[in-house]
Simulated assay, not measured.
Amino acid sequence: MTSALDVDPANAEQARAWDGDEGVYWAEHADQFDRALRSYRTRFLEASAVGAGQRVLDVGCGTGETTREAARRTLAGEALGVDLSASMLRVARLRAGEEHLDNAAFLQADAQTHRFTPEAFDVAISRTGTMFFGDPVAAFRNIARALRPGGRFVQLVWQAPPRNEWFGAFTKAMAAGRVLPTPPPDAPGPFSLADPQRTRTLLARAGFTGPGVESLQGPMYFGPDTDRAYRFVLGLLGWMLDGLDRPDRDRALADLRETIEAHEGPQGVEYASATWLVTATVP
């Protein structure tokens, strides 16, 4: 799959995951992943401020929910979603077609290196898609080249793990008492942009001006009830059971179900979460 995808060597591992089994799982559960982040949708779209006739670049678009929303808002303009995952892009194209959004297009490419037409876009957006770049400065610089002067770049990224209850709860359950290795804070992954000062520095080095960071909090939704949320999370994190013997595996599964059941409420299974809304401008 990834052999046909031209990626920067720094992003090769991410390409293998997203254009492999991980991307397939996200494609198969597109509605659940979109629903999980729904509490951030309104503020993210407000900050994106997509206007009629504008051209929008959606970085790490996944199954295309944000690309489609941008296409609806830009009317006669265009929205291009870019992602590493062929599986997720197939879902994105299908859904855009079902909604008759002829101004939404999708491209399988590495946004860190893809040769976008210079100054082709008015706005670049990314909903939890920019934390996985192997070289974020190179990626941000490439996105800056694709934006016209005065163009905006709006990102939603995760705050640190202690601010995200879901991450700590699931990791603790699946660890089954093990001390799991902690990757370096700047390694590609969900929390690589959790330090707002680092993110500001990276954007400034890439040529953006006035990086602004706004703290947002909201519930993270994992399913309508314990059983369905348990199956969803286990499908996402089942790899963490590798190497466990039967008693520890049973312990991990029991602990996972216990925390999920404890978080089931009238709106379904929800955990506290926190993100940064990051905005920057091309001079």
Rank of each mutant, 00 (worst) to 15 (best):
R205A: 15
A12C: 06
G60V: 14
A12V: 13
E13I: 11
Q14Y: 01
M131Y: 07
L234M: 10
I143K: 03
L80A: 06
E78Q: 14
S126P: 08
A86Y: 01
A254Q: 13
D242N: 09
P149E: 05
T42V: 10
R163I: 08
A206I: 01
G177C: 03
G168S: 09
R141F: 13
G51L: 01
R43E: 13
G235A: 14
A139T: 14
A204P: 04
F106R: 08
A252W: 05
L241S: 15
Q155R: 04
D245G: 10
E270R: 14
H29Y: 03
R16V: 13
G64W: 14
A176P: 01
W26S: 04
A76V: 15
F44Y: 06
E22N: 13
T259M: 09
G97D: 09
V50D: 00
A146Y: 04
D19Y: 02
G189Y: 07
D135V: 04
A111Y: 15
A15L: 12
Y230T: 11
A160L: 10
A176T: 00
Y230N: 10
G210Y: 01
R72P: 02
A173T: 03
A49H: 12
V154E: 05
S85V: 04
F232M: 09
G64Q: 11
L57Y: 05
I143M: 07
A272W: 03
D195A: 07
A49P: 05
F208H: 03
S192P: 11
A175K: 04
A138W: 06
L80Q: 11
A229P: 12
C61E: 00
A144R: 15
A27F: 07
Q155Y: 04
L193K: 00
G223Y: 09
F167E: 11
S273Q: 13
V7D: 05
A138D: 03
P9N: 10
L236P: 01
P181T: 09
T117I: 08
Y25V: 07
